[in-house]
Amino acid sequence: MLREIRPAILVLVVLTAITGLAYPLAMTAIAGAIFPKQAQGSLIEKHGKVVGSALIGQEFKEAKYFHGRPSATVAPDPNDSSKTVPAPYNAANSGGSNLGPTSKALNDRIKEDVEKLKAENPSSPVPVDLVTTSASGLDPDISPEAALFQVPRVAKARNMQEDQVRQLVTQNTQGRLAGVIGEPRVNVLALNLALDTVGTK
Rank of each mutant, 00 (worst) to 15 (best):
R3W: 00
R3Y: 01
E4N: 06
I5H: 01
I5A: 10
I5R: 06
A8L: 11
I9W: 03
L10Y: 04
L15D: 02
L15A: 07
A17V: 06
T19E: 01
G20E: 01
G20C: 08
L21R: 00
Y23N: 01
A26Y: 13
T28V: 11
A29D: 10
A29E: 12
I30W: 10
A31C: 05
A31Q: 12
G32V: 04
G32N: 14
G32A: 10
F35G: 02
K37F: 01
A39T: 05
Q40A: 14
S42R: 13
L43R: 03
L43D: 08
L43P: 04
E45L: 06
E45H: 05
K46D: 05
K46T: 01
H47P: 00
G48S: 01
V50H: 00
V51T: 02
G52E: 13
S53V: 08
S53F: 12
S53H: 09
L55N: 15
G57D: 10
E59S: 14
E59Y: 03
F60D: 05
K61N: 05
K61V: 10
E62N: 07
R69W: 04
P70S: 03
P70A: 02
A72C: 04
T73C: 12
T73H: 13
N79V: 00
D80N: 14
A92N: 12
A92V: 02
N93Q: 15
N93P: 08
G96K: 03
N98G: 03
N98W: 02
T102L: 10
T102A: 14
S103K: 05
K104R: 12
L106F: 11
L106K: 10
N107E: 12
I110G: 05
I110N: 02
D113W: 02
L117N: 03
K118C: 08
K118E: 14
A119Q: 09
E120I: 14
N121I: 07
S123N: 15
S124N: 07
P125E: 07
V126R: 12
P127A: 06
P127K: 07
V128I: 06
L130A: 04
T133N: 06
A135T: 01
S136A: 10
L138R: 06
L138Q: 10
D139M: 04
P140A: 14
D141L: 08
I142S: 04
I142P: 05
S143E: 06
E145H: 00
E145G: 03
L148D: 13
Q150L: 11
P152S: 11
V154P: 13
A155I: 09
K156Q: 12
N159Y: 01
N159R: 03
M160I: 06
M160G: 09
Q161S: 14
Q161C: 01
Q164C: 03
Q164S: 14
V165F: 14
V165G: 11
R166T: 15
R166I: 08
R166V: 05
Q167S: 15
Q167R: 15
L168K: 14
T170L: 13
N172H: 15
T173I: 13
T173Q: 11
G175E: 11
G175N: 08
G175Y: 09
L177S: 14
A178S: 10
A178C: 06
E183C: 00
V186H: 11
V186W: 12
N187V: 13
L189G: 15
A190N: 14
L191I: 12
L191H: 15
N192D: 07
L193H: 09
A194R: 05
L195K: 11
T197F: 00
V198C: 11
V198P: 09
T200H: 06
K201V: 00
